[in-house]
């Protein structure tokens, strides 16, 4: 098994773990962490497959750097929203919202 394939398989496993966490974990912080794991899996595949015959390709490295910046921005927004939700509802999980039965806020 080549190193590239090993990285890719590890990345795929991370992606699957992240996906499961994002869908199954009710706690918001766990969901946010799961999203980061999922993203890291995709980055690992991108970097892992991006080497030809042991020569490292710099382009995917640049892409992953950009991707990390994007992931940090998304994480910050998610944390800010989770914090607001905690202040509003007192819990760190998505409430069962049925907007059609709730009085309008606006």
């Amino acid at each position: 098994m080549s190193a590239a394939l090993l990285y890719a398989l590890a990345g795929a496993a991370l992606f699957a773990i992240g996906l499961a966490g994002l869908l199954l974990q009710p706690h918001l912080l766990r969901k946010i962490l799961a999203f980061n794991i999922l993203g890291s899996g995709a980055f690992l595949i991108l970097v892992g497959l991006g080497q030809r015959d042991g020569i490292i390709d710099p382009v995917p490295q640049a892409m992953v750097l950009t991707g990390i910046v994007v992931a940090i921005a998304a994480t910050a927004l998610a944390l800010a929203l989770a914090r607001q939700l905690l202040d509003l509802t007192g819990q760190m999980r998505l409430p069962e919202d049925r907007p059609d039965t709730e009085p309008a806020d606006d």
Partner: peptide
């Protein structure tokens, strides 16, 4: 407000 922030969180995920 509760409903918009919940909707935003769900949308974000």
């Amino acid at each position: 407000g509760r409903q918009p922030v919940t909707a935003a969180m769900r949308y974000l995920f």
